[in-house]
Design a protein around this nucleic acid. Structure first.
Length: 868
RNA sequence: GCCCGGGUGGCGGAACUGGUAGACGCAAGGGACUUAAAAUCCCUCAGCUCAUAGUGGCUGUACGAGUUCAAUUCUCGUCCUGGGCACCA
């Protein structure tokens, strides 16, 4: 055989063919069942990396599979194109962010095309284009008018290096998620989206997303953080009966044990209470010291719980006791009301604090088996028990008193039931240039004025200087900033210079894909109703809370304004694992590239300094760890099909994938095996029509092969359709191919007149089953097999039920649960018959050794277990 | 600290509802073809063990118990590991 597998020639040929024939163009067709498949769109950083390829390969298998199943598949791709790297690159290379971004998009688009993903490129857009962000601005205006977008002054996480505000979600253990700089606190006027209005709904609907991994919905639930409890007012001991501190607690059952109060250092009362007292100086010092160390700071985690007395008292509404008011470093202004009622007997943190400052401890919950003594207690008692020292509630189980105490609070006017969320409103202001401008004008006379809808989009000015001055570049862009007030026409007005968080763009891009070129509004409703919601969404688990929660929120906002009819954007979600590779580290030179490692007899040496090299952990590929694989190199060496195959074969999608050079070679070998099995048999099968009849008319090896082919169809279909376990789908086809090679060698079966037909069916089926995974080579082989219309829209093979049954099954014969013998039998034979065979088996009898049989368990077609 | 995962050969991973552990691939070793190499093909491949070399015996899915005729699978405890949240009142 002269024909050699040449991946590059085959792949370029079919990519051209698909493009020419518009094979993947998706159009609304109400007669067909739609399937909207989406992978998280990339940030155009410049290069596609292997993690993208894995993500998109997974998606492409599903898209191509569904197409073959007759679905009208929409599989779009685009660019999450706003963001900081463009600005950073602009500063470094003295280019404009737009230029940098668009040239990156060019490069990455051609890379993606070279992998042969079945995208409908007609729907492509970049979120940085005015045609896209215009609609985002419109939505902002609608939200502003509905009071869902509002401005408030607040402390924000500030990254000094990136010169920007970060959302809480973008702060990872005290550091900027992008540049790892330690985050500090800054007070600024910010725009917020009121996501908390939907906290309850977003939480409840987590349970209505059966197609999502429970892990992700659990993370969202924790993030939203709903707590049910009560708000309680503690009046100050100032005889006015007007000033009070309000707290939120989940333990109103312990209110009789509240002996002191802790306020967050930022709490407005802290300064007021201590003013003019001898405590003023101490309080001020403490507050200043504590605020400096913000809560996300690394130091903050380690610091001891401490506080200072403000000099004033408040009154416990139930006991009328005086409670000293402290300000404490563990009280958080952002949670609840910034004030904590402290119950030292039943909260460990309060207990430690009370011990430290010698504060009163009152036991109000008595456990069943022991008697708590505040003087001898060594830790707080946080379990259930019976209330004591609690007036009219004495003797009631604490959990039962929750409701009653909340009711009494309400009756007395000193509180109420209350639900509190950890989730806070979404701060979207960014002091950056490369983002969507917030369409707001500040007028000296009229105040905050929204840009009229007819004036949209508010364009990002192109003639700006980046990195020359402190702060946001838009602030120094006079042409942009200076404007007329749309209401009073006064010249004394300026534009908002902050831009929107880039998570805003990615919160609705999946909606825009349905009508990407629609000019009249944000969304063309009929298209949207047809395509949405996304049937399958695929992306990294790192977006479990950020992007996915915002998207759920935005979908509700769009729904509220009547733009869309659905509330949840993604019916099914698959979160794929990272791509990892081993690292090499030299004590002196740090991380090394694989080519910098010299293998020697015993251990590896560093090519730079000659020092010992340690093979480090398998870690996520990253430039800094020097363990990155370049997809383009891989594709030019082995081809796109091999690259795809390996990404899918090495691990199931949800798990991390460990890169292996030899594994890639194995994948390449397999494609070659497939390629060869077609060509070596082509003369035999070329003119044969595939056998599709019942297996009973066949015999011997041919029958076995025919049945194996149907079993393979069943396995692959199940693995793709129900489990996304492409690794086992591939191994099933590998088994079939292995079997085909055995037939090829077997001269006896070569005389069977049914051979060409069955062989054709088997080979053709293998090609069809592989086609979503390695589409190019399959298109080529499909053509070789004589099909002129392309494999992309060929029908997915169906299996025959009568071909799944086995002619013979192997039965394990066990004695006391241990396998002592195996025998072949007809399938589905009577239990009694199986027992009989097992009991006549020599090896089994040897182990029974004439002992009495207690019982015999028979599992049909599987085993016989004799218990003695 | 709290909440989720995960732990299976030299390696990546199979085993779908408790029913024959190790599919498929990689690596390794041996062999065939070849002047040679590459490519390809075939065989072996969890560990220990045996006067019987066999469809032999024993052990084995992180560790220890338990439920069961039967446990990688279910329950409890321990260890390790990955992730999320982290003074949340």
């Amino acid at each position: 055989m002269d024909i050699k597998y040449n991946p590059e020639a085959i792949e370029l040929k079919w990519q051209k063919y698909w493009e020419k024939n518009k094979t993947f163009k998706a159009e609304k067709d109400t007669n067909k069942k739609k399937y909207y498949l989406l992978e998280m769109f990339p940030y155009p950083s410049g290069k596609i990396h292997i993690g993208h390829i894995r993500n998109y390969a997974i998606g492409d298998v599903v898209a191509r599979y569904k197409r073959m199943r007759g679905y009208n598949v929409m599989h779009p791709m685009g660019w999450d194109a706003f963001g900081m790297p463009a600005e950073n690159a602009a500063i470094e290379n003295n280019t404009h962010p737009a230029k940098w971004t668009y040239s990156n998009i060019e490069a990455m688009r051609s890379q993606l095309k070279r992998v042969g993903f079945s995208y409908d490129w007609n729907r492509e857009f970049a979120t940085c284009s005015p045609a896209y962000y215009k609609w985002e601005q419109l939505l902002f205006l609608k939200m502003f008018k509905a009071k869902m977008a509002y401005r408030k002054e607040s402390y924000v996480n500030w990254c000094q290096k990136c010169q920007t505000v970060l959302a809480n979600e973008q702060v990872e253990s005290g550091a900027c998620w992008r540049c790892k700089e330690i985050v500090s606190q800054k007070k600024l006027n910010q725009w917020f989206f009121s996501i908390t209005d939907y906290a309850d709904e977003l939480l409840d609907c987590c349970d209505k997303l059966p197609g999502w991994p429970p892990k992700v919905t659990l993370m969202q639930k924790n993030w939203i953080g709903k707590s049910i409890g009560a708000s309680i007012k503690f009046f100050l001991e100032d005889n006015t009966k007007q000033n009070y501190i309000e707290v939120f607690t989940t333990r109103q059952d312990t209110v009789f044990g509240a002996t002191f109060m802790c306020l967050a250092p930022e709490h407005p009362l802290v300064e007021k209470l201590s003013q003019g007292t001898e405590r003023q100086k101490a309080v001020k010092e403490f507050v200043e010291k504590t605020i400096k160390l913000n809560r996300t700071d690394k130091e903050f985690e380690k610091q001891e719980k401490e506080g200072v007395f403000t000099g004033k008292y408040c009154i416990n509404p139930f006991t009328q006791k005086k409670m000293p008011i402290y300000t404490a470093n563990f009280a958080l202004m952002e949670y609840g009301t910034g004030a904590v009622m402290s119950v030292p007997a039943h909260d460990q943190r309060d207990f430690d604090f009370a011990k430290k400052y010698n504060l009163e401890i009152i036991v109000v919950i008595q456990p069943q088996d022991e008697k708590l003594n505040p003087l001898t207690m060594t830790q707080a008692y946080t379990d259930e028990g019976i209330l004591i020292n609690s007036g009219e509630f004495n003797g009631i189980k604490n959990t039962d008193a929750m409701e009653a105490i909340a009711d009494k609070l309400k009756k007395d006017g000193s509180g109420d039931k209350k639900v509190n969320f950890r989730l806070r409103d979404w701060g979207i202001s960014r002091q950056r240039y490369w983002g969507a401008p917030i369409p707001i004008i500040y007028c000296k006379k009229c105040g905050i004025v929204p840009v009229p809808e007819k004036d949209l989009p508010v364009l990002l000015p192109e003639d700006i200087e980046i990195g020359k001055k402190e702060g946001s570049p838009l602030q120094s862009a006079a042409n942009f900033k200076k404007t007329k007030c749309p209401q009073c026409k006064s010249e004394d007005a300026c534009r908002e210079t902050d831009t929107m968080d880039t998570f805003v763009e990615s919160s609705w891009y999946f909606e825009r894909y349905c009508s990407p070129n629609y000019q009249k509004s944000i969304i063309e409703k009929e298209e949207n109703n047809y395509w949405m919601p996304v049937d399958q969404y695929i992306g990294g688990v790192e977006h479990a809370v950020l992007h996915l929660l915002y998207s759920r929120y935005f979908t509700r906002v769009l729904n509220k304004f009547g733009f869309v009819n659905h509330k949840e954007p993604f019916t099914n979600l698959l979160t794929q694992g990272m791509v990892c590779k081993e690292t090499h580290k030299c004590a002196k030179c740090g991380f090394l590239f694989p080519e910098q490692v010299k293998p020697e007899k015993q251990n590896k040496k560093c090519a730079i300094c000659g020092g010992e090299v340690k093979t480090g952990r398998v870690e996520k590929m990253s430039k800094s760890k020097k363990n990155v694989i370049e997809p383009s190199e891989l594709i030019s060496e082995y081809g796109a099909d091999t690259t795809r195959l390996f990404c899918l074969f090495a691990a199931p999608p949800e798990r991390d994938l460990e890169w292996s050079k030899t594994g890639v070679e194995g994948s390449f070998r397999f494609i070659n095996r497939v390629f060869r099995i077609v060509y070596t048999n082509i003369n035999t099968i070329a003119s044969a029509s595939p056998y599709t009849d019942t297996p009973d008319k066949l015999s011997g090896e041919i029958k076995k092969l025919y049945k194996k082919t149907h079993v393979t169809i069943a396995r692959v279909t199940n693995d793709i359709e129900n489990r996304f376990h492409f690794n086992t789908a591939i191994s099933a086809v590998m088994e079939l191919i292995n079997e085909l090679y055995l037939i090829d060698d077997n001269t006896n079966t070569k005389k069977d007149p049914n051979l060409p037909k069955v062989l054709k069916f088997a080979i053709q089926t293998a090609i069809l089953l592989l086609s979503p995974i390695v589409p190019h080579v399959c298109e080529e082989l499909w053509l070789v097999l004589g099909h002129k219309n392309g494999i992309t829209n060929a029908q997915w093979p169906e299996y025959r039920k009568d071909a799944l049954t086995k002619d013979q099954v192997e039965i394990a014969a066990q004695v006391n649960g241990k396998i002592r013998s195996k025998f072949l039998s007809e399938p589905d034979i009577e239990d009694e018959k199986l027992k009989e065979i097992a009991l006549s088996d020599e090896r089994v009898l040897k182990f029974i050794n004439n002992k009495p049989i207690k019982k015999i368990i028979v599992v049909k077609n599987k085993l016989v277990n004799i218990v003695i």
